[in-house]
């Protein structure tokens, strides 16, 4: 049996940017949330794409947004979703709906379990990965009231 610690295949999976998505990850490094907006039909787009998922236009422009939104749903993992995440259990896995209307899979940080309410305002947290390879977009409870 291959031991997990010696096998890179068992290392925590990291995001690998593509030519299409690179501006998103570069934005996170600057502490900015950037989304694509379709110049043909005005749809906000996430995840990043080559073509708009509403009209298939290729005219997608990157825009900086506030990164604030509402908690759409969540779960707290009592067993790891995979061994790679055993050190993070219990994870507060979340889906956030940004104010632009797009949804983003992420996690909640800096929140107590009993504070989590679906619909609560959330704000972005820019968290570098342990090895500094990338910056992940996590969310926390926003204290300032936002648009309803």
């Amino acid at each position: 049996m291959t031991t997990r610690s010696s096998d890179p295949a068992f290392a925590k999976p990291l995001p690998l940017a593509t030519q299409t998505s690179a501006p998103f990850w570069e934005g996170l490094r600057r502490g900015e949330v950037c989304l694509q907006r379709c110049e043909a039909c005005e749809a906000w787009v996430f995840h990043p794409r080559s073509n708009c998922p509403r009209c298939l236009s290729t005219k997608l422009a990157w825009r900086k947004v506030a990164g604030t939104g509402r908690l759409h749903t969540f779960t707290i993992t009592r067993v790891p979703t995979a061994p790679f995440f055993a050190d993070e259990v219990p994870q507060m896995l979340a889906v956030v709906e940004l104010d632009e209307g797009v949804r983003i899979p992420s996690t909640l940080v800096g929140v107590a379990e009993d504070e989590i309410v679906i619909g609560m305002r959330v704000a972005p947290v820019f968290e570098p990965t342990v090895g500094g390879e990338s910056v992940l977009l996590r969310f926390t409870k926003a204290w300032a009231p936002g648009p309803r």
């Binding site: 995840h47 790891p80 979703t81 995979a82 896995l93 979340a94 899979p105």
Partner: peptide
């Protein structure tokens, strides 16, 4: 691979729970 798995969003249990 790019936008879910690095956060721990993978396999089925968590998705159905959410």
């Amino acid at each position: 691979a790019e936008f879910e798995i690095p956060y721990g969003h993978l396999a089925q249990n968590a998705g159905y729970a959410m």
